[in-house]
């Protein structure tokens, strides 16, 4: 845990990589690639975030406990988004029963 010293050289390398990736993702933002825009943008964001977590936050040198905390948080976040989206994405599959429609169009209500 505390104690591992990362060299300035490595820090600088990470820093430059992060800047370059920011440039790349911004440049891609000016091109319309359809659905690939979000995929590339998120892939770059995940890459950048991983660098920050592993090196700036010393996760690479930390014990397994911080990793466990981090992994479970991501699992829980995935649960939140996946199960909610399972509703949002399938809501349009349902169709109101026929009776309803005829009732409302015939002006009874």
């Amino acid at each position: 845990m505390a104690g591992h010293i990362v060299s300035i050289k490595l820090y600088a390398l990470i820093f430059i990589t992060l800047l370059v990736m920011t440039g790349v993702t911004t440049a891609v933002g000016y091109v319309d690639l359809g659905r690939w825009n979000i995929i590339i943008a998120l892939a770059i964001a995940i890459f950048k975030a991983s660098l920050v977590i592993l090196f700036f936050m010393h996760m690479k040198y930390a014990g397994k406990l911080p990793r466990l905390v981090f992994a479970s948080t991501l699992l829980w976040l995935a649960i939140l988004i996946t199960l909610t989206m399972s509703d949002v994405l399938t809501r349009s599959w349902d169709h109101p029963p026929q009776g309803w429609q005829s009732l409302s169009t015939s002006g009874q209500r």
């Binding site: 943008a41 975030a49 700036f56 010393h58």
Partner: peptide
């Protein structure tokens, strides 16, 4: 330890922005 702990917090706030940037600024190509 205080320096390290506050550092971890600061980097975390940075990470949130790393995700906010593409999600808010980079929807579809321009």
């Amino acid at each position: 330890a205080t320096v390290e702990v506050v550092g971890i917090y600061w980097h975390f706030v940075d990470i949130i922005w790393i995700f906010l940037f593409p999600l808010l600024y980079l929807i579809g190509g321009r």
